[in-house]
Design a protein around this nucleic acid. Sequence first.
DNA 1: GCGCATTGCGCAATCGATGTAGCAAGCAAT
DNA 2: ATTGCTTGCTACATCGATTGCGCAATGCGC
Lengths: 331, 331
Amino acid sequence: MSKRRTTIYDLATLADTSPSVVSAVMSGSWKKRRISEKTADRVFKVAEENGYSRNIQASVLRSARSNIVGMILPKYDNRYFGAIAEAFETRAREAGLFPVITCAQRDPDLEIAAARELVSYRVDAIIATGATDPDRITGICKDAGVKSFNLDLPGALAPSVLSDNEDGARTLTDILLDHCAATGRSGPLMFIGGRVADHNTAARIEGFRQAHRDRGLTEATDLILPCGYAPEKAYAALMSLKASTPQAIFVNSTITLEGVIRWLSETDRLMKGELPFVCFDWDPFGALLPGNLAMARQDVPKMMSVVFDLLSEEQNTPSKVLVPCLMERFP
Amino acid sequence: MSKRRTTIYDLATLADTSPSVVSAVMSGSWKKRRISEKTADRVFKVAEENGYSRNIQASVLRSARSNIVGMILPKYDNRYFGAIAEAFETRAREAGLFPVITCAQRDPDLEIAAARELVSYRVDAIIATGATDPDRITGICKDAGVKSFNLDLPGALAPSVLSDNEDGARTLTDILLDHCAATGRSGPLMFIGGRVADHNTAARIEGFRQAHRDRGLTEATDLILPCGYAPEKAYAALMSLKASTPQAIFVNSTITLEGVIRWLSETDRLMKGELPFVCFDWDPFGALLPGNLAMARQDVPKMMSVVFDLLSEEQNTPSKVLVPCLMERFP
DNA sequence: GCGCATTGCGCAATCGATGTAGCAAGCAAT
DNA sequence: ATTGCTTGCTACATCGATTGCGCAATGCGC
C-alpha cells in the first residue's frame, strides 16, 4: 500500500521529455500546445505502462475551475430522490463534470455543513435539492463565488427548478372527484402528509382547494392534515381520526403513503379497494396497490435538463421554472 | 462570481501572523504546535469575518492522505442500494472521512472508469458495491496503493462483505414450503430472477435447492428461471410459460418482483392472493402486496459496520464475511 | 545568405496548505 | 555570566499539474 505514485516528472524522464509536455499530453491540450504526434504517442505509451493517473487535486489547485458539481440531497429512500441522483450523475458526466452527491438526512445543520464542505472542495456549482433553507446555502455559495441552484424546493436568491405542484395536485384531485361522482361517493376528501411551512405542500393544498372550487364544492378544511411526511405521523393521524372517515384520500408523497397503506391494511380496508386514493410522487409497487387511482410522477429528466441548461449559462440570477408532472392513471 | 478566495496568506496578513500559524489553527493542530490561545482566537476571528474556507485540494495535495472514501454503486433505484448509500455516508462522516458515491448504472465499463476517476481524486479507499468485475477494480486500486473492498458481491483479491444469501434463501424457501404444506399445495415452486453467472443468484439457488433436499423433495429444475433482474425480463419469462403455472414463487429481488407483480396483476391473480411468494430484498410497499409471505431484508447497517471495521485495519488482505439477513414475515 | 514565420519544446512561476527545522525571547538553575 | 530548557512563532521547501513566455531549429521566399 501507499507506494509513491507516478507523476508527470517520472513520465517526463521515462519519455525523455519535459513535465510540461507530459502535462499537455495528459490533459488533452497537446494539440493546442503544438506537441508532435510522435512525442505524444511516446508519452501515452509510458503513461499506460506505468499505470499513471492524473492527480486531480494538483490539477484543480492550479487551474481556476474544478469541474466538480455538488448536489445536496435529503435522502435516498424513495424513487424520486433516487431518480434525481441518477439523472444528476448522468448529466454531469455528459457535461464533462464530476458529480458529488451528499446526503443531508433532512437535517438543516447537516445541509449547511454539507454546503461548506462542498465549497471547500472548490465545486463549480451546488444544486440544493429539497433544502429546508435554500437561501442560506445560496449565501454560502455567493461568498465563495460558487453558482447555486435550487431543485424541488424554491429559494428567493438562486434559480429554482421544481414541479408544477399546484397543477399536478389539481389534476389528481379532479381524478379523485370524478371517481367519487362516478361511484356515488359524496363525502369530503382528505388531504394527508407534508408540512404547511413547506412550499410544495402549500402549493398542493392550493391545487386541491382549487379543484374543489372549480366544481363549486367547499372542501372540509378539517380533513386537511399536513402532519409531516413520515409514515408514522400519517398512521397516527389516521388512527386518531375523530370525524367519520373520508370518502377518498389525497396522499402528499410516497413516504406518507407508506403510513396510509399501513392504516388501510390494518383496518382491513386495503384489499377491498374500499378507499380510493391518489398520490403525489410515484413508486412502482405503490402503483399496484388496490384503490390507487393515479400518481403524479415528477418529470425528473426534464427538471435536470433545465438545471443543466441554467448551469451552462454565465449568470446566476434568481428565477423559477415549473416543470409539469406526468400523470400515471390506473384502471 | 469567481472572485479570488481568501487564503491563509490573506488571513495571516489580517491577523498579523504567519501562514503557518493560520494553517495550524485552521487544521486544528494548533495546540500540538504550541500556538497561544490569544493568537488562535485572533485567527479564528478574521477567518470568520472573511468567510474563509479551507482549500481541500491544496491540503490533500500536500498531505499524503486525502480522507476521501469512494463507493461505486450500481443504481439508486431500490431500497437496498438507497440504504447502502445512506449508511455509507453516515459511517464515513463518523469516521471523519468524506464520502463520494458514484453510480455505474450496472455498466462494466463505467465501473472501471469510475474506479479510475476515484483513484485520480486520491481516495484512501474504494468500496465496490455489486460490481460486475470486482477483481479488476481491486487491480486498479492496488496499482495506485489504494485500499479496496467488495460489498454485496465478492471478489477474490480484496476483503468482501455480503449477505448470507444461501442461508437467507433456504429460510425463505422453507417459509414457502411450509405454507404450501399448510394450504394443501403440492406442485413445484418457481425461482425467478437474477443471472446464473452472478454469485448471489447462484448462492440463492443453492439455498433454494437445499431447502427442497432437506425435505426429501426434488425441485423441478425447469422452474428455475434466472432471466436477469429487470422487471420486463421476468414479465416476459412468465408470459411465455409453457408448463403449468407454479404453486408458489421465490422472487430473487425487488426489481424482479416489479415484473412478477405486473404479471400477477394482469393475469388477475394478484388481488386474490392466489399465488403466494417470497422475495429476496425488502421494499415497504412490496411488503404489503397480497400473497407476499416474507422478504429477506439485508442487514445494511451491520454490513457497513463490518466494512468500516476492515477499513480501519492496516492491511487489505482478501477475506469474506457473511452477514445474516433479517427475515420479515407477513401474516 | 538574410529576414521572417512556423514548429516543437522547455523553463520557471504559480496555485494554497503543510510541517520540519530553526530562531529569538524568557526563565531557571548552576 | 553561562548553560539549558521551554514557549511561541516564522521561513522555506514541498506536494503535482498548469501555462505564459521564450528559445532553438527548421522551412521558405527572395
